Measured scan of single mutants.
Amino acid sequence: MATDAALRRLLRLHRTEIAVAVDSAFPLLHALADHDVVPEDKFQETLHLKEKEGCPQAFHALLSWLLTQDSTAILDFWRVLFKDYNLERYGRLQPILDSFPKDVDLSQPRKGRKPPAVPKALVPPPRLPTKRKASEEARAAAPAALTPRGTASPGSQLKAKPPKKPESSAEQQRLPLGNGIQTMSASVQRAVAMSSGDVPGARGAVEGILIQQVFESGGSKKCIQVGGEFYTPSKFEDSGSGKNKARSSSGPKPLVRAKGAQGAAPGGGEARLGQQGSVPAPLALPSDPQLHQKNEDECAVCRDGGELICCDGCPRAFHLACLSPPLREIPSGTWRCSSCLQATVQEVQPRAEEPRPQEPPVETPLPPGLRSAGEEVRGPPGEPLAGMDTTLVYKHLPAPPSAAPLPGLDSSALHPLLCVGPEGQQNLAPGARCGVCGDGTDVLRCTHCAAAFHWRCHFPAGTSRPGTGLRCRSCSGDVTPAPVEGVLAPSPARLAPGPAKDDTASHEPALH
């Protein structure tokens, strides 16, 4: 009773807030009518008042009428009001819900409408889902798969039609296919003929059939049928067999079959498995989609049935006599038709004709302190090069084509190399640097090759510096006499390219 009084008091307290929050009759008014909170006449009256005075006034009048009803109607109103779709449509209802007392429970059932309790003993237990329907569909599909699609060729003596089998029958139906081979029951999904010589313990000319048996419980189990008994694959494991010639990621696949039913060829011909030897223990289905393919039931050349050999690369099948050149017997292992072999060759040939990528240039590290003349020119003028003790990398590039010797140069053309002071002394051009340390401070000019250098860098042994005729380390061993002091540049003949010694390969005349 306390809860009923509290709900009535809360409705009177929030009546105006609810009326202002509800700006549309749908969905709240319609939901109240659906849950029998508002009768039909009051529903029509509220809609009429909404058209006349507006939605807030109409709902305020409806809530005032609701306060005169019993506690069950008020409880049902609060339940409908706080439904998710009403809270989404009328956003101003959320503060009312947040301020609702926590001790007021809106989930209690309506009085007088409590459903009768059902004894637990009368409640049926839930049924577990079964796979009976899938099993029945598999039974119905198996006879259809064994139905012949056409008439065999005159040369083929193997013609068999499976008798119709009602689904209610649980007995196995067997077809006489000759040579002791028996087909599987209607619940078998796949059958492959297997030679009895590969099964340990088999006697006589009995041949087993590799099947997948579907049981009534819905589970499946792969086994071997020899005669009327089934054997699990673990009985046929043979770890010492060295003649297993397995197909790549293979499961067994029928390579020879008669049109209309699988079996042995007439005249004692023995149908073979995809792999010879003992049956392997793992009978998992292969991951290669080509091995799941269903080959055609007629020859791809003459479009006739009979004894066919199936290609492992495509769905086509052929007569042995229709092949070019014809085959006398079934080859062992994987067999592919000429079209598949030709496609494989065409895929391999473009790969062989692809040009080989060019090898990157060989990189040879230079000892610290040495650099090529090109690196000396590329440096920024007026700045010493940083990191001189790091190992430089010199790339061996292809030799350029031989060019004509340089033409003779006048001494005026070499004027930018040297600057003559007032006393006739050779001065260095701006930006000249030593080729060893890279520093341009207090550098000297070689009178023979006009290269800038430090005496301490080229002659670290402490050799005394002569007063005139300074030469760098590369030119100090040259027998050519030094030019007379005061000459602007060496003779043009000295600039012609010539053979250089091994220790002077990195010091070429550089223009500054």
Results as ranks from 00 to 15, higher is better:
K165Y: 08
S99W: 00
P116F: 12
L13R: 14
P154S: 06
L28F: 00
P266D: 08
Y85I: 07
G263L: 10
K221H: 06
S234E: 05
R12S: 01
T147F: 15
R272T: 09
G180R: 15
H14M: 00
F100W: 15
L63P: 03
S248M: 10
E45C: 00
K52A: 10
K245G: 07
G112P: 12
L106E: 02
K159H: 12
G54H: 02
P166W: 00
R149M: 04
E17P: 01
R8H: 00
T72C: 05
P116D: 04
E51N: 00
I74L: 01
Q94S: 03
L93M: 01
S169V: 14
A73P: 06
R9G: 08
P109Q: 07
A191G: 09
G178D: 05
R92E: 00
F215V: 03
R15H: 01
D76W: 05
L67Y: 03
V206P: 07
P95S: 06
H60E: 00
L128N: 10
A138L: 13
L158E: 10
K243A: 05
S250N: 08
W78E: 05
P115I: 04
V123T: 08
L28D: 00
V206L: 11
G91C: 01
S250R: 02
S220E: 12
K243R: 11
L75T: 15
V226N: 01
G219H: 07
G54V: 04
R127L: 05
K133C: 02
A191K: 04
T147Y: 07
T147S: 07
S168F: 14
E216I: 00
G91H: 00
A61L: 01
A31P: 01
A144E: 06
R139P: 02
E40Y: 00
G269I: 11
A160R: 10
G268E: 12
L177S: 05
L63H: 01
R272E: 11
V188T: 04
P119I: 15
E17N: 00
P101I: 01
A6P: 02
P233R: 12
A193N: 12
I96E: 02
E45R: 01
E229M: 02
L10A: 01
R139I: 10
K235M: 14
P143I: 08
T16W: 00
A141R: 10
V22L: 04
E136F: 05
L10P: 03
D103R: 03
L62R: 01
D98Q: 15
G208T: 04
K120C: 13
P266M: 14
A170T: 07
D84N: 05
A261Q: 12
I181P: 00
N179F: 04
I18N: 00
A58M: 01
V214A: 06
D198A: 10
L177K: 11
D103G: 14
K102C: 09
V38S: 00
S195F: 02
R92A: 01
S217H: 11
Q212L: 01
S169Y: 15
S239G: 11
P266A: 10
Q189E: 10
R257P: 09
S249Y: 09
P162R: 03
L7P: 02
D41C: 14
P252W: 05
H48S: 00
G240P: 07
G112R: 03
E229V: 02
P200T: 09
R79A: 02
P148N: 05
G240K: 11
C223T: 12
G267T: 15
S153R: 05
K253W: 13
P95Y: 15
I209L: 07
G54C: 02
R132V: 00
S107G: 06
P125D: 08
G112E: 13
P143G: 09
A202I: 09
L93P: 02
D36R: 05
G227L: 04
E88D: 03
G201I: 13
S220F: 03
L93A: 02
E40G: 01
A144F: 13
G91V: 07
A61N: 05
R149K: 06
R12K: 15
K131L: 01
R190I: 02
C55W: 00
P56E: 00
V226Y: 10
S64K: 00
P148M: 05
S64W: 04
K114D: 02
